[in-house]
């Protein structure tokens, strides 16, 4: 299996270590730009992020994969004859344009799982707000905060595992807003306490 990692063609993939291995002779500046690291043997490697890992596993071991900023990843059966290019930077783009039949839009797996997690997170948020409203003697404050935390954790899981999930993006925005409001509420409480003391 070969990986055309953006501007770095002909990378290989080591499944056991989960490394994308750059070919020898690739410019160091280019490798550093794409967050490749050099090991003690002088090889340049990169650990794919979760989304990249899922894409690689989808094509493992029978497809070469072309990563590009301009389009979704492309899967090319690796039994095809290699095409010779003079300019390595344009190799991956040329493969894409010369083989339109390879323009498969990979499914974003787990969309329904992401949505289910988001729904649970949203229910937990609603539960926490309910607990703050119902709580008369602060007995539900901690469970309410705990529910917000759990909701936040589920939302982070969705953002990391299913970054394309729109529901997750919106829910994460709501959590950031809650975080900011909590800080503002804390400052408001502190200021009110000071005003009370000053007026006594």
């Amino acid at each position: 299996m070969l990986i055309y990692y953006y501007m770095i063609p002909d990378c290989s993939y080591l499944k056991d270590q989960n490394y994308i291995l750059a070919p020898e002779g690739t410019a160091e500046g280019l490798l550093q730009q794409y967050d490749f690291q050099q090991n003690e043997n002088g090889f340049w490697y990169k650990i794919p992020n979760h989304q990249e890992y899922e894409i690689i596993m989808k094509g493992w071991p029978n497809y070469d994969i072309i990563f590009s900023f301009d389009h979704k990843p492309v899967y090319k059966p690796n039994s095809e004859q290699p095409v010779i290019f003079h300019d390595s930077a344009s190799k991956s783009e040329s493969i894409f344009h010369e083989h339109p039949e390879f323009q498969e839009k990979p499914e974003i797996q787990g969309t329904s799982t992401g949505n289910v997690l988001c729904i649970i997170a949203l229910l937990l948020l609603c539960l926490s707000f309910l607990s703050f409203i119902v709580s008369q003697n602060d007995e539900f404050i901690l469970p309410g905060i705990g529910a917000i935390l759990l909701s936040c954790i589920l939302t982070i899981i969705v953002r990391l595992r299913y970054p394309e999930n729109l529901f997750g993006k919106i829910l994460f925005g709501i959590h950031v807003l809650i975080f900011i409001l909590l800080i503002l509420a804390m400052i408001e409480v502190i200021l009110e306490c000071v005003q009370c003391l000053n007026s006594c």
């Binding site: 967050d35 690291q37 650990i47 992020n49 901690l142 905060i145 705990g146 917000i148 935390l149 936040c152 954790i153 982070i156 953002r159 990391l160 959590h175 950031v176 975080f179």
Partner: peptide, 24 residues
């Protein structure tokens, strides 16, 4: 070499969990 988004999410989660368990 921890990814930017993972490090960022940890920055959001860590203080909330720290405060929650401190209170708990």
């Amino acid at each position: 070499q921890i990814q930017k988004n993972v490090s960022g999410y940890l920055c959001m989660l860590a203080p909330m969990m720290s405060l929650f368990f401190g209170l708990l």
